[in-house]
Design a protein around this nucleic acid. Structure first.
Lengths: 161, 161
DNA sequence: TATTGTTATACTCTATAACTATA
DNA sequence: TATAGTTATAGAGTATAACAATA
């Protein structure tokens, strides 16, 4: 029998995850680290506090990720020009190139997947997914916690680019 | 500007994850543990080897998950009737009820999300996602590793139900 | 000899809480 | 006093390798 609609979505979510893991495999990068690089590419040099907010994780977590990425040569810690408590994290030249290439591949994947859909169906799929995303977002933010706090962080992972 | 198609999919994947995490919150359950329960519900009492294959993780990992689920009263270890090396893991009565309810909620979510899509678009969305899933699966399994091993495990997460 | 599950060890992501240096 | 980042500690998921008991 036909799989449920949600199961198709879950399957796609899982496949995405595996495809990304596969792409990073051997590079020493992980999903969390790439996400941080991705944020840095878009935000430019940032303090760890800022990165914590953008990634929606604790500052402590950022410390660990930056430690690892610094060791692997992807980012650099620079003293903040005016605030001696803070540091600025920035991409190295090598990582900048890596991220540019990653963005290319991202765009390529977009084309590839779009081309898998019958042209006549594309508009409907876009509309449908847009509606589903909106609905899900509503579910997650509404029933979130008894005290929602209305943080309004701009979706940590699949955003921007 | 419009987000890329892949970014919409990534966003949905992320929202799903957060919705599930939210649903488990406070129950002591996690994604990995629920996945194991899910597999158990469908497969019935199974050895840990079998579970490792079905979940696509190492046997060692299953030991840890079963330890946790046993402690929380969700599963039970039973001696294997014929093989004294092996144990059978089975759902407790309480967990069986929990899983039945979870399956209900799953079906409900399916209805909710489907109803968010314009009726005229539904068929196209199903076709489109089916094509995308097939394409992604191809990408993941093909370019997997130089030595693919052709394991053919039936998609570990969003499957079955 | 091969298989089942476990112990031992290790790495990553994540969180909270306490502390240091600055503001 | 408040903020930026760190240390300390902890728990979850995951992996490999070595080992016991059994087949």
């Amino acid at each position: 029998m036909e799989p449920l609609f949600v199961d198709r979505l879950l399957l796609i979510a899982d496949l995405f995850q595996r495809d990304m893991a596969r792409a990073f495999d051997g590079t020493g990068l992980t999903t969390a680290r790439v996400h941080l690089l991705w944020v840095l590419q878009h935000a430019g040099p940032s303090t760890q506090q800022t990165l914590a907010q953008l990634c929606d994780v604790t500052p402590r977590n950022i410390t660990g990720l930056v430690d690892a990425l610094e060791k692997s040569g992807h980012v650099r810690r620079t003293p903040h020009p005016t605030d001696r408590r803070a540091v600025l994290v920035e991409l190295t030249e090598a990582a900048t190139a890596t991220m540019a290439q990653m963005q290319d591949e991202h765009a390529q994947l977009n084309e590839t997947l779009l081309s898998a859909i019958a042209p006549a169906d594309r508009a409907a799929v876009e509309r449908g997914l847009s509606a589903v995303a909106a609905h899900l977002e509503h579910l997650v933010t509404t029933a979130a916690t008894p005290a929602p706090e209305s943080a309004g962080a701009p979706s940590p992972r699949g955003d921007t680019a």
